[in-house]
Protein backbone atom coordinates (compact mmCIF):
# COMPACT_ATOMS: atom_id res chain seq x y z
CA UNK A 1 0.00 0.00 0.00
CA UNK A 2 2.59 2.54 1.14
CA UNK A 3 4.78 1.28 -1.70
CA UNK A 4 2.12 2.19 -4.21
CA UNK A 5 1.82 5.68 -2.75
CA UNK A 6 5.59 6.06 -3.08
CA UNK A 7 5.53 4.95 -6.69
CA UNK A 8 2.69 7.35 -7.45
CA UNK A 9 4.57 10.15 -5.72
CA UNK A 10 7.74 9.38 -7.68
CA UNK A 11 5.77 9.43 -10.93
CA UNK A 12 4.17 12.76 -10.01
CA UNK A 13 7.55 14.33 -9.24
CA UNK A 14 9.02 12.95 -12.45
CA UNK A 15 5.99 14.29 -14.35
CA UNK A 16 6.30 17.80 -12.93
CA UNK A 17 9.98 17.83 -13.84
CA UNK A 18 9.31 16.46 -17.30
CA UNK A 19 6.80 19.13 -18.38
CA UNK A 20 9.27 22.02 -18.91
CA UNK A 21 11.79 19.60 -20.39
CA UNK A 22 9.21 18.39 -22.87
CA UNK A 23 8.16 21.93 -23.78
CA UNK A 24 11.75 22.99 -24.38
CA UNK A 25 12.41 19.89 -26.48
CA UNK A 26 9.23 20.52 -28.46
CA UNK A 27 10.07 24.17 -29.07
CA UNK A 28 13.54 23.23 -30.23
CA UNK A 29 12.27 21.07 -33.08
CA UNK A 30 9.23 23.07 -34.22
CA UNK A 31 9.09 26.38 -36.14
CA UNK A 32 9.04 29.42 -33.83
CA UNK A 33 5.50 30.45 -34.74
CA UNK A 34 4.26 27.26 -33.13
CA UNK A 35 5.85 28.35 -29.84
CA UNK A 36 3.57 31.38 -29.85
CA UNK A 37 0.40 29.44 -30.79
CA UNK A 38 -2.59 29.87 -28.54
CA UNK A 39 -3.90 27.68 -27.02
CA UNK A 40 -0.42 26.09 -26.55
CA UNK A 41 0.07 22.74 -28.22
CA UNK A 42 1.57 19.72 -26.50
CA UNK A 43 2.61 17.80 -29.56
CA UNK A 44 4.75 19.22 -32.38
CA UNK A 45 2.83 19.71 -35.69
CA UNK A 46 5.86 20.20 -37.85
CA UNK A 47 9.34 18.93 -37.08
CA UNK A 48 12.34 20.88 -38.26
CA UNK A 49 16.02 21.44 -37.44
CA UNK A 50 15.97 25.03 -38.70
CA UNK A 51 16.20 26.43 -35.13
CA UNK A 52 19.62 24.85 -34.63
CA UNK A 53 20.97 26.32 -37.86
CA UNK A 54 19.42 29.72 -37.10
CA UNK A 55 20.86 29.73 -33.57
CA UNK A 56 24.31 28.89 -34.94
CA UNK A 57 23.97 31.82 -37.37
CA UNK A 58 22.76 34.25 -34.69
CA UNK A 59 25.43 33.55 -32.08
CA UNK A 60 28.91 31.87 -32.04
CA UNK A 61 27.51 28.56 -30.85
CA UNK A 62 30.53 26.34 -31.58
CA UNK A 63 32.93 28.68 -29.84
CA UNK A 64 30.53 28.94 -26.88
CA UNK A 65 30.25 25.19 -26.61
CA UNK A 66 34.03 24.68 -26.58
CA UNK A 67 34.53 27.45 -24.03
CA UNK A 68 31.74 26.15 -21.79
CA UNK A 69 33.11 22.62 -21.77
CA UNK A 70 36.68 23.83 -21.29
CA UNK A 71 35.82 26.11 -18.38
CA UNK A 72 33.60 23.48 -16.72
CA UNK A 73 36.21 20.71 -16.93
CA UNK A 74 38.99 23.03 -15.74
CA UNK A 75 36.75 24.12 -12.88
CA UNK A 76 36.12 20.52 -11.85
CA UNK A 77 39.86 19.86 -11.84
CA UNK A 78 40.90 22.93 -9.89
CA UNK A 79 38.02 22.70 -7.44
CA UNK A 80 38.69 19.07 -6.54
CA UNK A 81 42.41 19.73 -6.27
CA UNK A 82 41.75 22.47 -3.73
CA UNK A 83 38.81 20.86 -1.96
CA UNK A 84 40.38 17.42 -1.39
CA UNK A 85 43.20 18.44 0.97
CA UNK A 86 41.01 21.06 2.66
CA UNK A 87 38.18 18.60 3.22
CA UNK A 88 40.53 15.92 4.54
CA UNK A 89 42.13 18.37 6.94
CA UNK A 90 38.75 19.64 8.11
CA UNK A 91 37.53 16.08 8.69
CA UNK A 92 40.61 15.08 10.67
CA UNK A 93 41.33 18.27 12.64
CA UNK A 94 38.27 19.67 14.32
CA UNK A 95 39.72 23.15 14.93
CA UNK A 96 40.82 23.61 11.34
CA UNK A 97 37.48 22.28 10.24
CA UNK A 98 35.47 24.94 12.02
CA UNK A 99 37.59 27.72 10.48
CA UNK A 100 37.39 26.30 6.98
CA UNK A 101 33.62 25.99 7.36
CA UNK A 102 33.47 29.70 8.11
CA UNK A 103 35.62 30.65 5.12
CA UNK A 104 33.58 28.48 2.76
CA UNK A 105 30.26 29.82 3.96
CA UNK A 106 31.41 33.45 3.77
CA UNK A 107 32.43 32.88 0.16
CA UNK A 108 28.82 31.97 -0.55
CA UNK A 109 27.14 34.68 1.50
CA UNK A 110 27.28 37.37 -1.19
CA UNK A 111 25.22 37.08 -4.34
CA UNK A 112 27.50 36.37 -7.29
CA UNK A 113 26.11 39.43 -9.06
CA UNK A 114 27.49 41.62 -6.26
CA UNK A 115 30.98 40.09 -6.53
CA UNK A 116 31.03 39.92 -10.30
CA UNK A 117 31.58 43.66 -10.93
CA UNK A 118 34.49 44.19 -8.52
CA UNK A 119 35.92 40.91 -9.77
CA UNK A 120 35.67 42.20 -13.35
CA UNK A 121 37.63 45.32 -12.29
CA UNK A 122 40.38 43.17 -10.78
CA UNK A 123 40.47 40.93 -13.85
CA UNK A 124 40.87 43.98 -16.11
CA UNK A 125 44.00 44.88 -14.11
CA UNK A 126 45.44 41.40 -14.47
CA UNK A 127 44.47 41.02 -18.11
CA UNK A 128 42.03 38.21 -17.37
CA UNK A 129 38.87 40.08 -18.31
CA UNK A 130 37.19 38.59 -21.40
CA UNK A 131 40.09 36.15 -21.69
CA UNK A 132 39.63 34.08 -24.88
CA UNK A 133 40.48 30.92 -22.92
CA UNK A 134 38.08 31.89 -20.12
CA UNK A 135 40.82 31.84 -17.47
CA UNK A 136 39.16 34.57 -15.39
CA UNK A 137 35.80 32.82 -15.58
CA UNK A 138 37.49 29.55 -14.60
CA UNK A 139 38.90 31.17 -11.47
CA UNK A 140 35.50 32.64 -10.58
CA UNK A 141 33.79 29.31 -11.11
CA UNK A 142 36.35 27.57 -8.93
CA UNK A 143 35.37 29.96 -6.17
CA UNK A 144 31.72 29.03 -6.71
CA UNK A 145 32.24 25.28 -6.80
CA UNK A 146 34.63 25.06 -3.88
CA UNK A 147 32.09 25.14 -1.01
CA UNK A 148 30.01 22.36 -2.58
CA UNK A 149 32.97 20.10 -3.18
CA UNK A 150 34.38 20.90 0.25
CA UNK A 151 31.18 20.03 2.13
CA UNK A 152 30.55 16.81 0.20
CA UNK A 153 34.12 15.59 0.56
CA UNK A 154 34.47 16.58 4.19
CA UNK A 155 31.52 14.47 5.24
CA UNK A 156 32.85 11.64 3.10
CA UNK A 157 36.26 11.78 4.78
CA UNK A 158 34.54 11.81 8.14
CA UNK A 159 33.02 8.47 7.16
CA UNK A 160 36.46 6.94 6.58
CA UNK A 161 37.67 5.42 9.87
CA UNK A 162 40.84 7.13 11.10
CA UNK A 163 42.15 3.67 11.94
CA UNK A 164 42.43 2.80 8.25
CA UNK A 165 44.83 5.69 7.74
CA UNK A 166 46.72 4.82 10.91
CA UNK A 167 46.99 1.21 9.77
CA UNK A 168 48.48 2.39 6.48
CA UNK A 169 51.03 4.56 8.30
CA UNK A 170 52.07 1.57 10.43
CA UNK A 171 52.24 -0.59 7.30
CA UNK A 172 54.94 1.74 6.08
CA UNK A 173 53.06 4.18 3.86
CA UNK A 174 53.99 7.87 3.95
CA UNK A 175 51.15 10.31 4.74
CA UNK A 176 50.93 11.20 1.04
CA UNK A 177 50.79 7.57 -0.05
CA UNK A 178 48.22 6.87 2.64
CA UNK A 179 46.02 9.61 1.24
CA UNK A 180 46.31 8.42 -2.35
CA UNK A 181 46.13 4.66 -1.72
CA UNK A 182 43.67 4.48 1.18
CA UNK A 183 41.72 7.67 1.89
CA UNK A 184 41.05 8.71 -1.69
CA UNK A 185 39.68 5.41 -3.03
CA UNK A 186 37.31 5.27 -0.07
CA UNK A 187 35.65 8.60 -0.90
CA UNK A 188 35.26 7.76 -4.59
CA UNK A 189 31.44 8.02 -4.61
CA UNK A 190 31.61 11.46 -2.99
CA UNK A 191 34.33 12.46 -5.41
CA UNK A 192 32.04 11.53 -8.29
CA UNK A 193 29.15 13.46 -6.78
CA UNK A 194 31.32 16.52 -6.16
CA UNK A 195 32.72 16.43 -9.70
CA UNK A 196 29.22 16.23 -11.14
CA UNK A 197 27.87 19.03 -9.02
CA UNK A 198 30.82 21.33 -9.71
CA UNK A 199 30.59 20.62 -13.43
CA UNK A 200 26.93 21.62 -13.41
CA UNK A 201 27.61 24.72 -11.30
CA UNK A 202 30.05 25.95 -13.93
CA UNK A 203 28.00 24.70 -16.88
CA UNK A 204 24.87 26.61 -15.82
CA UNK A 205 26.58 29.65 -14.35
CA UNK A 206 25.24 32.91 -15.74
CA UNK A 207 26.14 36.01 -13.71
CA UNK A 208 29.94 35.70 -13.91
CA UNK A 209 29.71 34.45 -17.47
CA UNK A 210 27.72 37.56 -18.41
CA UNK A 211 29.90 40.11 -16.62
CA UNK A 212 33.42 38.69 -16.93
CA UNK A 213 33.32 37.82 -20.64
CA UNK A 214 32.08 40.23 -23.33
CA UNK A 215 32.84 38.69 -26.67
CA UNK A 216 34.12 35.26 -25.71
CA UNK A 217 30.95 33.92 -24.19
CA UNK A 218 29.94 30.58 -22.73
CA UNK A 219 26.57 29.05 -23.61
CA UNK A 220 24.30 30.43 -20.81
CA UNK A 221 24.69 34.13 -21.79
CA UNK A 222 24.28 33.21 -25.47
CA UNK A 223 21.07 31.42 -24.59
CA UNK A 224 20.01 34.44 -22.56
CA UNK A 225 20.42 36.72 -25.61
CA UNK A 226 18.38 34.48 -27.84
CA UNK A 227 15.68 34.20 -25.23
CA UNK A 228 15.67 37.88 -24.32
CA UNK A 229 15.38 38.94 -27.95
CA UNK A 230 12.28 36.85 -28.49
CA UNK A 231 13.53 33.63 -30.02
CA UNK A 232 12.04 30.81 -27.93
CA UNK A 233 12.76 28.29 -30.70
CA UNK A 234 16.43 29.26 -30.99
CA UNK A 235 17.00 29.42 -27.25
CA UNK A 236 15.28 26.04 -26.84
CA UNK A 237 17.62 24.61 -29.45
CA UNK A 238 20.62 25.86 -27.46
CA UNK A 239 19.07 24.52 -24.26
CA UNK A 240 18.76 21.09 -25.84
CA UNK A 241 22.38 21.30 -26.96
CA UNK A 242 23.36 22.18 -23.40
CA UNK A 243 21.67 19.04 -22.12
CA UNK A 244 23.95 16.75 -24.08
CA UNK A 245 27.29 17.30 -22.27
CA UNK A 246 25.48 17.39 -18.92
CA UNK A 247 23.96 13.98 -19.62
CA UNK A 248 27.31 12.62 -20.83
CA UNK A 249 28.94 13.75 -17.57
CA UNK A 250 26.14 12.10 -15.59
CA UNK A 251 26.63 8.82 -17.41
CA UNK A 252 30.41 8.91 -17.05
CA UNK A 253 30.29 9.59 -13.32
CA UNK A 254 27.30 7.42 -12.46
CA UNK A 255 29.27 4.23 -11.70
CA UNK A 256 31.45 6.15 -9.27
CA UNK A 257 28.38 7.26 -7.35
CA UNK A 258 27.53 3.73 -6.34
CA UNK A 259 28.32 3.39 -2.68
CA UNK A 260 29.53 0.43 -0.65
CA UNK A 261 33.29 0.98 -0.91
CA UNK A 262 33.64 0.99 2.86
CA UNK A 263 31.99 -2.36 3.52
CA UNK A 264 34.21 -4.81 5.32
CA UNK A 265 36.86 -2.54 6.80
CA UNK A 266 35.78 -3.25 10.33
CA UNK A 267 34.22 -5.96 12.41
Amino acid sequence: MSRRILVALACAIAGVNAIPLWLVAKQAVTPERESFAWPPTWLPHEITLENFAAAADAVPLGQGLVLSIGVALATVGSTLLLALPAAWLAARRERVGVRLDGVMVVARLFPTIAIAVPLAVIFVRFGLYNDPGGVGLWLAHTLLGLPFAFLILRSAFRGVPTELEEAALLDGASPGTTFVRVSLPLVRPALGAAAMLVFLVSWDEFAYALLLQVTNRTLPPLLFYLSAFGHPGLSSAVAVLMLVPAIVILLVLEPALRSGVLAGSGR
Binding site: P161, E163, L164, E166, A167, A168, L169, L170, D171, G172, A173, S174, V182, P185, L186, V261, L262, A263, G264, S265, G266, R267
Partner: peptide, 20 residues
Protein backbone atom coordinates in the same frame (compact mmCIF):
# COMPACT_ATOMS: atom_id res chain seq x y z
CA UNK B 1 60.37 8.56 14.70
CA UNK B 2 57.31 8.50 12.45
CA UNK B 3 55.04 5.43 12.78
CA UNK B 4 56.27 3.98 9.49
CA UNK B 5 59.90 4.09 10.67
CA UNK B 6 59.43 2.25 13.96
CA UNK B 7 59.15 -1.30 12.57
CA UNK B 8 56.04 -1.88 14.64
CA UNK B 9 52.92 -3.68 13.39
CA UNK B 10 49.53 -3.35 14.96
CA UNK B 11 46.22 -5.19 14.80
CA UNK B 12 43.42 -2.77 15.52
CA UNK B 13 40.34 -3.62 17.50
CA UNK B 14 38.26 -2.86 14.41
CA UNK B 15 40.79 -4.75 12.20
CA UNK B 16 41.08 -1.71 9.88
CA UNK B 17 41.25 -3.79 6.70
CA UNK B 18 41.40 -1.77 3.48
CA UNK B 19 37.91 -2.42 2.13
CA UNK B 20 38.73 -1.55 -1.48
Amino acid sequence: LAPQDRDVAMVFQSYALYPH
